[in-house]
Design a binder for these strands. Structure first.
Lengths: 110, 110
DNA sequence: TAATAATATTCCTTGACAGGAATATTCCAT
DNA sequence: ATGGAATATTCCTGTCAAGGAATATTATTA
């Protein structure tokens, strides 16, 4: 996992755009109408999202239909797998580590 | 989902710290030794991570053991659920939307 | 209590990035 | 080819966040 996915979603308007596109692919103007920013900013954000591989474009007539790219989210899901043990593991690894640290301290003092 | 989780992980060193902590909770110095930045920066990044609820601290002697907070990752997982249909759905919604847009255009021309 | 280890904070500077405004580009219909 | 609709790009400015350096704080040990 690299940081580019996180950094593009760190901008509130871009996260909004992603949420909007999660309903269905749509054109720039459709997105503009659902946000409180102007068209040039939306185009800029879409470019950043496209460069990061989060969305892609399909031109239809003189409209451009933006859609989420499944691969990006698939990769995030894969990355997140590593962290599922955090809450799925029934027994808490933290307690064990802390206990071990305390033991080490005691031993050092002997 | 708010952007704070994404924005804290957008910084490469912080993402590194998270990956390091995914192995096990550990002290500031242990983290410093595994990165190429100095202790004050690590402390700063840890503070940002803590403020965002991604990590928390347990003091042991004069060390401070940082650990990932499961809840943060659980929330990301929950958010991501909405996007799983993107690659799990066998039939591709994009094609349908594009087809529909083309239809609309044709109808407008009549 | 003084010294030291471990960690946190402050101040400063610089670079990146978002929005506004204006303009450019692309595509389509006539 | 011309006009208009849809979208993209450029330039500018202000803000914010990261790193460096120095220093402060906290906790432990002697």
């Amino acid at each position: 996992m690299n940081t580019s996915f996180f950094s593009v979603l760190a901008e509130p308007n871009r996260l909004n755009i992603v949420e909007i596109l999660s309903n269905q692919p749509q054109s720039v103007n459709q997105i503009v109408m659902k946000l409180h920013i102007r068209q040039p900013q939306v185009s800029k954000h879409l470019k950043i999202l496209a460069d990061a591989g989060v969305v892609d474009v399909n031109p239809i007539a003189n409209k451009r239909i933006y859609a989420l790219k499944p691969q990006a989210f698939k990769e995030l899901d894969l990355w997140l797998k590593k962290y599922r043990v955090l809450w799925e593991d029934r027994f808490n690894a933290l307690d064990k580590v802390l206990e071990k640290e305390k033991q080490k301290l005691k031993e050092e003092r002997r």
